[in-house]
Design a protein around this nucleic acid. Structure first.
Lengths: 335, 335
DNA sequence: TTGAAAGCGCTAACAC
DNA sequence: GTGTTAGCGCTTTCAA
C-alpha cells in the first residue's frame, strides 16, 4: 500500500497536519520537526497524492493541451515548446489529440475540465466549439484562434503576412497562374494565408483564378490528391501555394512521380518550415513559423492568466502575432 | 461554481448518495428517480469531478505514456495507436516526453504515479531506471524493454530479425564494407539490430569491421554527423545501416550535399519505415515496424493486466515480438 | 428504494 | 509549535 501522511504522522507520533505543513514548507513547524518529517518521508518512500491535494487546493498543477494531430511535425515542435516551458515552471502537461474532428475536440475539452486542469491550450479545428470553449471555467489560450473567438488570448504567426510574403515571392519569380491548396473547411490558418496571398496579387494587379483554389486534409495525401487533380484539370497552372508543408510534401511527391521538376516547371511554396523541408532532397521553399517560441509564449500567457485569476486581477485577452519569414529554397525560382 | 451531486440532490430533495447511484447506473434506485436525476443533471450542466471520483474508486481511467521524443514520427505513430485504442476503451492518455534523458524519465514516472494513473506504457531510455520501474505500483508495459527488465510485459518488433533482414539484403546486393550507425549508448533497439546484422554477416562468412560501428543521437543531425565522419575517415565504406530512419535521413542529407548517390555509390538502409521514407525524393530502403499495431497491442496488454490485477488474477509478464519487414526502395541496389 | 455516515488523502482554519 | 476539525466531491457500506 502507498505511504500517506498519516503513516508518517503515526510513525513520528505527530499529528498528520503537522506532517502536511512540514512537507509543504508552510510556517508553523519547528525546523527540527520539518527535517525529521522530510527524512522519514523519504525513507518511507512517500509520494504525495496530487489527486487528493488537487481536490482541496483546487489546483492540479497540470495544463491541458489539445492539438489536431501528432504526426505533423509542426504540432510536435509547438508542443515540445509548451512541454519544455511547462516543466521549467513546474507544471505537467496533459496532451489530447482531436484528430481534426470537432466532436473529438469537444470530448477532449470535457475530459480536461473533468480532470480539473488549471488551464487549456488549444488549436481548435472548428468554430462550432467556440461556445463550449468560452464556457470553460479555466483560462484558455488558443493557437490561431483569434478570428473564431476573442474571449481568450491567442498566439499565432501572422498568417496574412505569411500569405502575402509567399505571394510576393511567387510573383517576383514570374509565376502568374497559382493554385492555392487549403486545409480543411473552416481552417482559419488557410483562410488568412489565402487572404494575404490574394491581397498581394491584387496589389500587383494580377488576377488570381479562384478555380485554382481547392482544399483537402492537412497531410501528405491531401496535397498529393489536390496536385493530381489540379495538374490534370488545369495543366497551365504554373505554381502552387500549399497552405502547409506536409501538404507541399504531397504535392512534391506527385510532381516527382510525374517527372515534373519543382522550381523549374512548376513553383511550389509551403508554410511552416518543418525540419524535413530543409533536407537537400526536398529543399522546399516555405514560410517559417517560430514553432518553439509559439509553444513557449502560449504557455507563459496561460500561466500569467492563471496567476491573475487566482489574484483576482482583471485580465484582458491579448492577441500575439509573430512575424513569419520567407525561406527560399529550390522549389521556386531563385530570385 | 461547478455543479456537484449535492446540488442536484438538493434540487430534487434527494440524498446525494441516491444521485450518485443514479448517475453511475448502480442498482438501488427506481427507474423513475434515475431518469429524473439524469435529466436534471443534464439540465444543470453537471460534469462529474473525476478527481474526486478517482480518490475513492482508486481508478482514474487514465494511463500514462512516456516516450523519448515527439518529433520522431515513429513515436508519433505508435502513440497515435495507443491513444486511439485507449479512447475506444474509455481511457484517457497522459503523455510525457523524456527527451531521451534518464533523469527526465524518472521525473515522468514519478509524475504519473502521483497522478494515480491506472497503468504506464513506456519506452525507457535507460537501464538505470529499471529498479524504479519495477517498484511502480501499477501495471507497466514497455516498448522494447525486455532485455532491460522482465518484470513487466513488453511489445517490440523483432529487432534481431530486423537487423538480420537488413544485413541479408545488403549482402545480397554485394555490399561488403558496411558501417553501422547506432543510437545513444545503451539503446537496446540498436543493440539487437546490430546483433542480428552481425549474425547475418557471420553466416555469410563475411567479416564486419567494427571500426565502422559508431553511435550518435537518434535524429537527423546524429546521422548527418556520423556519415560525415565515417565517409571522411573510411572512404572505402560501401554501405550504411542506420539504426533508424531519421538517422538515415541525416545520412542521405550528407551524401546528397556531397553529391554521393545513395544506392549507386553507397547503399543506405534505415529502420522503422516512417512515412517520409517512402517519398519519391527519399525512397529509403528500410525495415518496417507495424507502428500502429504496436501501440494498440501495448494498450490492450496494459488494460488486460489492469483488469487482472483488480480481479486478483495472477499475471505473467509476456513478451510480444512483431515481425519486421524489408522494404526495398532506391537507396540500396535493386535485387 | 432511500437516507445516513464513513472515508479516500490532503489542506487550511481554528484552537490549544 | 502542535493538535483538532471540517471539508474538497465522490463512492460505498450499513440502516432504515
Amino acid at each position: 500500500m502507498k505511504v500517506t501522511i498519516k503513516d508518517i504522522a503515526q510513525k513520528l507520533n505527530l499529528n498528520f497536519s503537522s506532517v502536511s505543513r512540514a512537507l509543504n514548507n508552510k510556517p508553523g513547524v519547528s525546523e527540527k520537526t520539518r527535517e525529521l518529517v522530510m527524512d522519514t518521508a523519504k525513507k518511507m518512500g512517500y509520494t504525495p497524492n496530487v489527486i487528493a491535494r488537487g481536490l482541496v487546493s483546487r489546483s492540479t498543477k497540470t495544463i491541458g493541451v489539445i492539438i489536431p494531430d501528432i504526426i505533423n511535425p509542426l504540432f510536435g515542435e509547438i508542443t515540445t515548446g509548451i512541454i519544455e516551458t511547462a516543466n521549467i515552471r513546474n507544471y505537467d502537461v496533459f496532451l489530447c489529440i482531436s484528430n481534426w474532428e470537432s466532436e473529438k475536440e469537444r470530448d477532449n475539452i470535457n475530459t480536461l475540465q473533468q480532470k480539473q486542469v488549471d488551464g487549456i491550450i488549444i488549436k481548435s479545428v472548428s468554430d462550432s466549439n467556440s461556445a463550449i470553449l468560452e464556457a470553460v471555467s479555466v483560462p484558455v489560450v488558443g493557437y490561431e484562434s483569434w478570428a473564431v473567438n476573442n474571449k481568450f488570448s491567442s498566439v499565432s504567426t501572422d498568417n496574412i503576412r505569411g500569405g502575402y510574403l509567399a505571394a510576393k515571392h511567387l510573383i517576383e519569380c514570374g509565376y502568374r497562374k497559382t493554385a492555392i491548396f487549403s486545409g480543411p473547411e473552416n481552417s482559419s490558418s488557410s483562410f488568412f494565408r489565402r487572404e494575404g496571398f490574394i491581397q498581394a496579387f491584387k496589389e500587383y494587379g494580377i488576377d488570381l483564378d479562384s478555380s485554382r483554389f481547392s482544399k483537402a486534409e492537412y497531410n501528405i495525401k491531401g496535397g498529393y490528391t489536390l496536385a493530381k487533380e489540379m495538374l490534370k484539370n488545369q495543366p497551365d497552372t504554373d505554381s502552387i501555394f500549399a497552405n502547409n508543408d506536409v501538404m507541399a510534401l504531397g504535392v512534391l511527391q506527385y510532381m516527382e512521380e510525374q517527372g515534373i521538376k519543382p522550381g523549374e516547371q512548376i513553383g511550389v511554396i509551403g508554410f511552416d518550415n518543418i525540419r524535413i523541408a530543409s533536407l537537400p532532397q526536398i529543399q522546399l521553399t516555405t514560410i517559417n513559423q517560430p514553432k518553439h517560441s509559439i509553444g513557449r509564449m502560449m504557455l507563459n500567457l496561460l500561466l500569467d492568466e492563471i496567476k491573475n485569476r487566482t489574484e483576482n486581477i482583471t485580465y484582458y485577452p491579448q492577441r500575439t502575432l509573430l512575424e513569419p519569414e520567407l525561406i527560399v529554397r529550390r522549389t521556386t525560382c531563385k530570385v
